[in-house]
Amino acid sequence: MTEQVESVISADRSAQAGIERSASLWADAWRDLRRRPVAIASAVVIVLVSSMAAFPWLWTRTDPRDCPIQLSKATPSAAHIFGTNELGCDYYAMTIYGARASIIVALVSTSLVLLVGALVGMAAGFYGGWVDSVLSRLADIFFALPFLLGALVFLSMLRSHSVWTIVLAFAVLGWPPLARIVRASVLATKNMDYVQAARSLGASDRRLLFRHILPNAAAPAIVVATILLGTYVASEATLSYLGIGLQPPEISWGIMIAQGQSYVTSGYPHLLLFPAAFLSATVLAFILLGDALRDALDPKLR
């Protein structure tokens, strides 16, 4: 009896050691990131854009849907610092309000992808056998479906295209890479001594997975997820360009860029430049932050 209790305590201690190890990994990474100007700049951009998405009224008091048609395609001026679009809507207000769609698509899709990917990856890696076979074949299908074409087919099926349907499309198509990362990581750790020890002491599957195995997969998964954030922002724009993304009167950078690009050579380059600059800065910020995170989390590259 006492022996058993002791063992549990010691198992817990070793688990704790594992967490401390990963905690120090994160602490190291944090220290490393703070020293990188690119990472700091990226973070600042992300915070600014997120604030536009969450509280657009902090940035503008103009209603982007109040459009006097007489002001159509005005070039930037004091009254409309980004000019107006073809319907006379204030382009600065539209650009600010357009952040929301991009950020929601990026954040929610990535969260879902992380969630689904982690669950599937863990199940496949931990249980193995037929569970692994079925899940791996399923992942194969979605992995093999070209992302853009898959999204195209998926979205064309749906009746309406809102931010949420695009999120759904990205999540349905995006989880396999994450699942593979997590699966590989589970396979690598599940036979490690400390996990075997915890198992032999009667730790439940769930406890093993979430306390002992998953933390090891977190670092690579989060790096990939950060980069995915950027990819999704860009993909939303591409879908809008192809006409199967968000539909006006919804406001998004993707729609603005897609509509504005035809006016570039017609004397209204502002219709492309402002939304494109905001979108590119956001994508760049996410990708560079992901990159920095990867470098910071990979001690080999220090």
């Binding site: 459009c67 048609i69 319907l87 199967i244 539909q247």
Partner: peptide, 16 residues
């Protein structure tokens, strides 16, 4: 109908 660029002028009609 969706995806054919009618939103722009229809929105203008609505605004009017």
């Amino acid at each position: 109908n969706a995806g054919a660029g009618h939103d722009v002028w229809m929105q203008a009609v609505g605004d009017q």
